[in-house]
Design a protein around this nucleic acid. Structure first.
Lengths: 193, 193
DNA sequence: GGTGCCATGTAACGCGTTACATGATTAT
DNA sequence: ATAATCATGTAACGCGTTACATGGCACC
């Protein structure tokens, strides 16, 4: 949902065309190292916004170069944008891939949960190092915001690492805790095979 | 990617059909309160797995009830599954909606960053309360894993709250830090308008 | 004359969602 | 009778990705 509202905001600031929005979004979030949004997404999102009447194609300019289809925000678009600002962001933390991997590993039996956790820890530390290095190379004068974003990433990676410790501690506690096993239910009439 | 590999794992355990996979996945991750996967996703994912030759439609059973299209894993599927177990999970933390919202708010000028943070904090505390309550209601005997999953969610929510504190502290420090403004670039020949 | 930037897209796919449709059996 | 469960999907959309296509203009 971020791109949609970011475009809406940038168009609210001033009427713009697709190419310009791509450049503006990239500049806004911190360049292609942070978020390399693809032109295809800009144009398709723009088309969706136009179809929902949140923006309208205002005019087509052509100053020597190629055509520019310029979009402006509508009252409905402004309402939508302000609703975004006045609502909180909550991601679905419960759709967690590592958790699923552990559950599948346990269900299979042959795959060791410890090993999954070890592999994950290594990946997280590597990522932590990568992000920390990246963070160190940013100039705080010009890009304070990027540093804050990377700090958020670091905090989440650290939380992931602490969670792994926690799971390992639990595994030590209960060596053979019964876990939810999917049992294929029998139907009324049992299969003849 | 979670569903894809979970299905692969469940089929590796034993050949299964779509309906059974839906039930097994739901049981595995902790029921519809945790992850309410839709049948439509099961069947479409299954079709994709079959098309990539990671599973094959083994047989069609019909014991009194409706037809059951049973899928089994292939050697390629097992290889893919083990590759999943041996690799780490890293989400793209950099595509952060709150960060985008703050940047757009600052670019617009009229929207206050403080207010965005305050709204977000409220939403996070509400969610924290919701999850904590949910956690309290789980029986640790039968669903230890679900508790661990909710703990992970709590840890991430707490990290988000700490980050907000951090951003607010920074805002106090530098009241008017220049932030990356998207400047529409002029072309070689300036517009005549 | 080629490289690169400006500016527009289209096509196809993956993951995920909601809503709809069909038909049989089982339990009340 | 009818409601729930078993079992299969299809259709359409949103967000995001990669890859491909077109054409003009500016710079070296």
């Amino acid at each position: 949902m971020s791109v949609r509202y970011a475009l809406l905001g940038l168009i609210a600031q001033q009427p713009r065309h697709g190419y310009e929005l791509h450049a503006a979004f990239t500049a806004l979030v911190g360049g292609q190292h942070i978020w390399d949004v693809k032109p295809a997404q800009i144009y398709s999102t723009l088309a969706r916004l136009a179809e929902s009447r949140l923006v309208i194609e205002e005019s087509v300019e052509k100053d020597g170069g190629p055509e520019k289809r310029i979009y402006a925000i509508t009252p409905a678009g402004e309402a939508d944008l302000h609703a975004w600002f006045n609502s909180g962001v909550l991601d679905a933390h419960l759709h967690d891939e590592l958790y699923v991997k552990l559950m599948v590993g346990l269900a299979l039996g042959e795959v060791d949960a410890r090993k999954i956790l070890q592999v994950q820890r290594t990946a997280l530390y590597r990522e932590l190092h990568r992000v920390t290095t990246q963070r160190q190379m940013i100039d705080p004068k010009t890009a304070l915001a990027h540093i804050l974003l990377l700090d958020k990433t670091v905090m989440h990676l650290e939380a992931d690492l602490r969670w792994i410790e926690m799971v390992e501690a639990r595994l030590d506690e209960v060596q053979r805790q019964p876990l939810p096993q999917p049992e294929p239910k029998q139907r009324g009439r049992p299969p003849k095979k």
